[in-house]
Design a protein around this nucleic acid. Structure first.
Length: 279
DNA sequence: TGTCAGGTTTCGG
DNA sequence: CCGAAACCTGAC
């Protein structure tokens, strides 16, 4: 396997937290994940990570982008460590990092997420991969890949519901896949300003404020965005005295003022922190 | 068994 | 605009 130096990067909380749903811990500090194009293996030993990509081997550019190894987390965190809640979150999860996943996979993953727990979303994406994704054979072992937009655009809705537990989200997934292929948005959106990208995403059925913001952060690496789910609302209320009835747009404004272009990082830390705290 | 999730849409006021 | 109910499914 390949390796590079990657200190202070917690694979557990980063790969298995609320960002991605396609990673499994196959041994302590050892993970395997799937995307629509790759099976990936990552293992930590000390300050190094050992890794391999399949079927294209040694795709260092891809993995460094996915893990965002170039993001200067030190600068991001020292800037906000003066905040008492962030200080506690950083002490507990100093190795938490943001991921930059494939846009298409992120879109479909978060279309599955509405009113589902992390466990439920993980089940959904595995069933999607099992039934609709390609299979990749590595050392005689078969692995499922995340389905592509082309594959999802062609599925039968009734069959999708029956096979995958996506339930009422089934038509949203199919329509989103077709919309992307019809318009080319999945290629173009990478170049759009964040507000324009959000507006385009929210045109999709099944994409509201929160899902759009998740896709912006985890699939397009827009660091100025904080997605607000129930946990995000909780930390805004409990830590920053926000009115429990505050509207999404109001919370967005407030975090923009507090955290600016690092809002996604701060939000991710507080999210993992309050979620673990179980309130 | 019943309730409620890491939401969004739709419908009624 | 704003609040409330319905929606699939699994977990508690």
């Amino acid at each position: 396997m390949n390796r590079f130096h990657l200190p202070n990067y917690n694979l557990d909380i980063t790969l298995l937290g609320g960002q991605s749903f396609t990673w499994d811990r196959i041994a302590p500090d050892h993970f395997r994940g799937f995307t629509s194009s790759k099976i990936v293996e990552i293992k930590r030993e000390g300050e190094y990570v050992y890794w391999q990509t399949y079927p294209e081997l040694d795709d260092e550019g891809w993995i460094k982008r996915y893990l965002r190894v170039d993001a200067d987390k030190g600068e991001i965190l020292t800037k906000h460590v003066g905040d008492v809640h962030m200080k506690a979150a950083i002490e507990k999860y100093s190795g938490l990092h943001l991921l930059h996943q494939d846009f298409e996979d992120t879109l479909v993953s978060f279309l599955c997420s509405a009113t589902k727990s992390i466990v439920g979303i993980r089940q959904c994406v595995r069933l999607l991969a099992r039934h609709y994704g390609d299979t990749l054979e590595i050392d005689g072992q078969a692995y499922d890949l995340f389905p592509t937009l082309e594959q999802l655009a062609d599925v039968d809705e009734a069959e999708l519901r029956k096979l995958t537990k996506v339930g009422f989200r089934a038509p949203n997934i199919i329509l989103a896949a077709r919309h992307m292929l019809d318009t080319g948005l999945h290629d173009e959106i990478h170049t759009y300003d964040t507000d324009i990208a959000r507006r385009e995403l929210m045109e999709l059925r099944g994409v509201g404020d929160k899902v759009a913001d998740c896709i912006l952060v985890y699939g397009l690496a827009r660091d100025e965005v904080t997605p607000f789910d129930i946990w995000g609302k909780r930390f805004m209320v409990q830590y920053y005295g926000m009115d429990p009835d505050a509207k999404y747009e109001h919370m967005r404004q407030y975090t923009q003022e507090m955290w600016g272009d690092k809002a996604a990082w701060v939000g991710q830390y507080l999210f993992e922190y309050i979620r673990e705290a179980k309130v």
